[in-house]
Amino acid sequence: MLHIKCPHCGIRSQNEFSYGGDATIKRPELGKEISDQDWDNFVYNRKSLRGKHWELWQHLSGCRQWIKVQRDTATHEIFKTLKANEEIS
């Protein structure tokens, strides 16, 4: 069982959250020419590496806020959590 520290509610169990994937992916800017490759990278292509991974979770059965979580994909250790609007440093 993962224990995720929601920046709004505190430590909660994994059951309350749903996963949203890689948090470092940025949508191509609106109103600009976007190549097929840009879309491909945004929609499909992922690094998905072993080790530290910034990812989105939603506290679905809690405050319903999206949050950013830095987790180790090999050990499941969670290092840091941020609110959705906080930049990854």
Binding site: M1, L2, S13, Q14, N15, S18, Y19, G21, D22, S48, R50, H53, E55, R71, T73, A74, T75, H76
Partner: peptide, 13 residues
């Protein structure tokens, strides 16, 4: 399990 993982072991939920 629903999230990226290389753990080769699962979680109970």
């Amino acid at each position: 399990d629903g999230y990226n993982s290389y753990a080769q072991r699962g979680n109970l939920p």
